[in-house]
Design a protein around this nucleic acid. Structure first.
Lengths: 347, 347
DNA sequence: ATGAAAGCGCTAACAG
DNA sequence: CTGTTAGCGCTTTCAT
């Protein structure tokens, strides 16, 4: 780890007997440089092991050549999968991908304050994090392209968005249970409308719940508070909620969980109570992450990887052509029927 | 998205009636600046919405203020978990975390070529990717600190490392099966020693296999080729291998899988053949990722999140004090007994 | 086709 | 405590 001095463009220039300007042109494949000179310079670059200083290049170009990705970190497989999609495409571009982890409200505030500035990044990708009103206005003022993936805000229509219609997904999941003949249907999801339990302001669970309510309403079925369970996102929390709901004397015959992780918690609760799935209880999840396939969970699939990929596509377009109109893309959702749903008992 | 000019340190200086130098000191909390001036400057910074240009700062400091993290991407939950640990700590530091995805050999070559230079990053974290000989020499020549997490190479002892003793883990897992009374024990793992099937050169599977062989040898049990299955990492692939092995007339009574993902494939194969686990077949995995808990899999736990966190700790130390001696840290492994292991049938 | 020179925005060494 | 100044390494006019 000898701490030798960086080899600069000037060293290359000197060795090649040309000016730094020419070297710069050569390494950037400028057309106005002699074929032969170009050759010679590239050889020297190789010999000297020259790597352009990226900071200098950025400063000179006035671009950061980096894209900031903001995620409430990998705690959820669904988020990780979206990120995966984003990374896989971005790594083929010239842009660096710098990750901004959001775990606490403080990190969140700092992030939204500094990131959407051209001094920090050429573009921003926000994944699964619905901005608050205040944050939305920060984003609206930004001077660089921003795309929202699985994130939304009424004031942010001017930004590119890749979302899924959670309301429709929630309704479709519930309608499937209704079609099977269920009338007593429970719901287990994330804490909502509460800064303590939901500091990161996820909204998808709420929208899926509203879809659930709409489906029940259309079927003329009353939404029962006792069939509703919410808590911070997680398998254990969902298990507890489900245990409570399933211990009711007139317990539901089906439960819709706002994510596959939570659905697994519901399955565990059913096992705790010696209920057989799907004979005694039907369970449907949301996302279709790998664990759904493993446990044979019926679920609403959404295109997670694809959402990340598509978001990056939009961002790269916007970077190349800043005048482009905002695109709102709604990815489809698909019912995947496996082994955890069936008609209700004695039907 | 008005494309207004960047607010520079000079604008702030002018507005505050001081020099740029003073502003620089103020925003960097230098002790040698008047309390009052500091106040005033910070207010102006706020007002003008000034965000320091990070490229300029980097160039001036001669540091990139960034750490490169190289991962063979999130295809595996274990890798994602390590990354999670790394991110969670790094996001509290002043360093940006730039992700370098490795999916193809070309990406890999480009990465190892450019990344370990101080022009690109102040430090590098390499996760779950054993360097080839050639790459190792590139890393050995690097002029910035590098830490290897779950990655290793004989020529790279001068680098910091956070590893787990896969050999010992493999042996311990196998010994547990032996203790239960099993003598016919199969192994399902990754393709090894083959650039086609193992382009990324993962080595942990091989080491676990060697531990398995050692345990069998100590017990005086012959290692049978027919009980060995390898393929690219994945649930389906493991399932196929296990199907083959379990279709033998004197099939094994236990299988050790090199990862939990593969163990789940083995469980599926058992189900395909109507074998009851653990009565007809014991299965043990490796990692203890969430799915292991969900399916009740007995497994060798390793500290995935912790490995990422610890790796970053070492890197930050090395960044702060480059003369520090290389640390080789071996994280412990722990047997977690769940419901997929039992004595062999009729024992 | 190439060289010279200015400047990107910031920090730090040097004066005062 | 603060102002002045000289770069950091690169790109990019402007000349030639």
């Amino acid at each position: 780890m000898t701490r030798r001095r960086q080899v600069t463009i000037r060293d290359v220039a000197q060795a090649a007997g040309v000016s730094p300007g020419t070297v710069s042109r050569a390494i950037n494949d400028s057309p106005l440089v002699n074929e032969e000179t170009q050759q010679r310079i590239m050889e020297i670059v190789e010999d000297l092991n020259y790597v352009p200083n990226i900071a200098a290049r950025r400063l000179s170009l006035g671009k950061t050549l980096a894209v900031s990705v903001v995620v409430p970190f990998f705690t959820r497989p669904s988020v990780s999968e979206r990120l995966n999609g984003a990374v896989s495409l971005l790594s083929q571009s010239q842009y660096d991908l710098v990750i901004h982890n959001i775990e606490t409200p403080e990190q969140r505030a700092a992030c939204f304050e500094t990131i959407p500035h051209r001094e920090r990044a050429d573009g921003v990708l926000i994944i699964s994090l619905a901005p608050t009103d205040e944050e939305a206005s920060l984003l609206a003022d930004a001077d660089i392209p921003i795309v929202l993936i699985d994130a939304d805000h009424p004031d942010l229509d001017m930004l590119h968005q890749v979302t899924v219609d959670d309301f429709a997904g929630g309704r479709a999941a519930t309608e499937y249970l209704l079609e099977l003949g269920h009338t007593r249907i429970g719901f287990v999801g994330d804490s909502i409308g509460d800064v303590i339990g939901n500091p990161l302001n996820f909204t998808s669970s709420r929208e899926r719940y509203e879809g659930y309510c709409a489906a029940l309403a259309s079927a003329g079925i009353e939404v029962r508070d006792a069939y509703y369970g919410e808590d911070q996102h997680g398998r254990q929390q969902a298990r507890r909620q489900a245990l409570r709901i399933l211990s009711l004397t007139d317990r539901p015959t089906a439960i819709f969980a706002a994510s596959d992780t939570q659905a697994v918690g519901v399955l565990e609760a059913a096992a705790d109570l010696h209920l057989t799935v799907p004979d005694d209880l039907s369970v449907i999840g949301y996302d279709d992450v790998e664990v759904a396939d493993i446990v044979g969970l019926t679920t609403m699939r959404q295109l997670l990887f694809e959402s990340g990929r598509r978001g990056v596509e939009l961002l790269l377009d916007a970077l190349a052509n800043p005048a482009i109109d905002p695109v709102h893309e709604i990815l489809p959702t698909e019912l995947v029927i496996r082994q955890t749903t069936a008609p209700p008992p004695s039907y």
